[in-house]
Design a protein around this nucleic acid. Structure first.
Lengths: 234, 234
DNA sequence: TGTACATCAGTGAACGCGCGTTCACTGATGTAC
DNA sequence: TGTACATCAGTGAACGCGCGTTCACTGATGTAC
């Protein structure tokens, strides 16, 4: 990479960093090219060397956020752990940690859509999937190692309900991932999502003194209800 | 109420209705006095006869949304039902229905905070509480009628965790509402909140063919895990 | 019932501001010979 | 190594636009006598 390319990459990252800073201060919907340029002490048109318009910048921020979340989960998933179940637990803890340390990124990807912005799905959807697939993969590991025995409720679906991945999913094919595992994944996901959302927007704090302990506790109960008997003694 | 007062009230409601319409079309963050006036075919300064600034209008919209949700839940709670548990079930179904039929109102009250707006807590917090208290009240009814026996997990909290209402809560005093019931309420709330949020922002649809059936099913499992054995035979 | 006055919803002009985007340009950095 | 040229990051002026808010006003509706 040439010197010029390095500088260019550096500026590009700085633009996104300042955009994030701006969101931190005035909310997700407040990304403004003028404000970014002002803070970088360059003129606004200069930004058009890096993004062809505002939407492209927003898309980059969204993709970055999804990727950073997925990277974080993957890193935790790779740490040694006494059991697959404990690995899963640690990854789900990391999910909340990431949300709390990157609140605006979390809002950006899982909260209200931005006004006057329409996401190009071909870019955001694959990025969105990666993080969830980390969780699915560990659930599958738990299952294959015999640490997870899905209860009957998740095997027999009520009439009219079906849960599955689209057959063209690049990372899983239907045969390698039993539907029951996906089902557990979706259930686990909405559990943690609900707690995190309520905490992030301060709806839970008036009633629960320590959302961190609450989260851990609920995680344990949830994993048990999904069919993980013990967290550690594999 | 005089003719003048009636007209005034009517215009006030129209302003809010058009603001909601506007949010429906361009997102929660897009409420604009100019745009509202344009659509009403009056001039923008005329709006200042009804709201002293933009924030006051936004606050009114938020309070309205919380109130409408609470009204809806209360109405469903008053319908005859074969048991308290079924009443609870119906109210939780109504919660999702309201969210789906009023998506922008739901985003407004439970999603990202609006840019350049700071909510006056003394107005929004009481409005926010009403809806949740409908659920708490039915949980209490279930408990008192013997349809709900909270499992041990929700009686013994882990060290450091406590769950409770602030003592000055106008509608409940600590003695009338056991902490365990509040605990179950918070747990139930985050369950439905997670599912609804994921559905509202289209994160669950790629995997679940019918979110409505999924929601019902999970509701049943959840109520059982909270200590409600049967939905109907009281 | 008719007149004089008060109330108040809505007007129209103006304000200062920030926004995204375009364009022709400058001047420093990198490349080819 | 030195010169001629190409690349390209950033400038500065300009655009049309929408925003919230203020102000002095008009004119219709309601009230008091």
């Amino acid at each position: 990479m040439s010197r010029r390319e390095r500088l260019r990459e550096q500026t590009l990252q700085e633009i996104k960093a300042i955009a994030r800073q701006q969101m931190d201060e005035s909310g997700t919907a407040s990304i403004s090219l003028n404000a970014i340029a002002r803070r970088m002490e360059i003129t606004t048109p200069a930004l058009y060397r890096y993004f062809s318009n505002r939407d492209e910048l927003v898309t980059a921020l969204i993709v970055d956020a999804f990727s950073d979340l997925a990277d974080t989960l993957e890193q935790v998933a790779e740490l040694p752990a006494p059991s697959q179940a404990r690995r899963l637990f640690n990854v789900l803890l990391a999910y909340r940690d990431w949300a709390l340390t990157h609140p605006v990124d979390f809002e950006l990807i899982y909260g209200n859509p931005l006004p006057n912005y329409h996401a190009p799905e071909e870019k955001t959807v694959p990025a969105a999937r990666r993080g969830f697939e980390v969780i699915l993969r560990i659930l599958l590991d738990c299952y294959q190692d015999g640490e997870l025995t899905p209860p009957a409720e998740y095997h027999q679906l009520p009439a009219g309900l079906s849960i599955g991945l689209s057959p063209d999913d690049p990372n899983f094919n239907p045969s390698s991932l039993p539907d029951v595992i996906l089902h557990l994944g979706v259930v686990g996901w909405y559990h943690i999502h609900g707690m995190i959302m309520l905490e992030l927007f301060h709806h839970i704090q008036p009633m629960v003194n320590d959302p961190g302990i609450f989260y851990q506790r609920e995680l344990e109960l949830m994993l048990r209800s999904l069919g993980i008997e013990h967290l550690d003694s594999s």
